[in-house]
């Protein structure tokens, strides 16, 4: 990872700094770029927000660290621990629950040998139970990084795991990267990272 000779152990790349500067211009106040800045940090810090990442966001937005922590801890998609290379978020809300979401969840826990909220020893997978992903028509829905997988059942979830084992896509970093591109004007024309 390039460091750009940043002071204080900052890790944002030149590209990220440029993107943050651009996004800040969208708002009348610098602090409004808090959520975008946290997404950029989550991309730069390997898919989660260690204390250094929060400090870097605080420095770049010129806000106190306590405020950055307060905001980041409110939202469930900011990770404070490193997730697996593939982070499987199983929706178990109403429509998914009545269509077998808990069976999917239990099958995953058995298959991977971990409980919801944990990461496998090899760092390959982590699983979590999440609230409604709003794709109820395709219940059960599993979000993996930037992708929704619909109509998942306890029977076909093995196929999903196999597909992910052989894939470098849908990582937490890729999710953060996709969201930053979405917030950047012209992001749809940018070449894939």
């Amino acid at each position: 990872m390039e460091t750009n000779g940043n002071e204080g152990g900052h890790r944002f790349s030149q590209k990220s700094i440029a993107q943050l500067d651009e996004i800040i211009t969208h708002y009348p106040e610098r602090r409004a770029a808090m959520l975008p800045a946290l997404w950029i940090a989550q991309r730069e810090y390997d898919g989660y927000l260690p204390p250094e990442a929060l400090q870097e966001v605080a420095d770049r937005l010129e806000r106190p660290l306590s405020e950055v922590q307060a905001v980041a801890s409110f939202y469930t998609m900011y990770n404070f621990r490193k997730r697996g290379r593939h982070h499987l978020e199983v929706c178990t809300c109403l429509s998914c629950a009545v269509r077998g979401a808990y069976e999917v969840m239990h099958k995953l826990e058995k298959e991977l040998g971990i409980s919801a909220g944990e990461v496998t020893v090899d760092g390959e997978f982590s699983i979590a139970e999440v609230e409604c992903l709003d794709f109820c028509g395709a219940a059960t829905v599993v979000q993996v990084g930037d992708q929704y997988f619909g109509n998942v059942t306890a029977e076909n979830v093995d196929m999903l795991l196999d597909q992910l084992r052989n894939s470098d896509s849908h990582t937490p970093v890729e999710l953060a990267d996709a969201l930053v591109k979405i917030m950047t004007p012209g992001g749809s024309e940018a070449a894939p990272a």
Partner: peptide
């Protein structure tokens, strides 16, 4: 006229209009 995208980060509460505005301004979505 400019149109910008602001993405959230996982909170049902931010669909409530005043919480959405808090979140847009870079605060907790309350």
């Amino acid at each position: 006229f400019d149109l910008y995208i602001h993405v959230g980060a996982g909170s049902y509460e931010c669909g409530e209009e005043s919480a959405l505005m808090s979140s847009l301004m870079g605060e907790r979505g309350q």
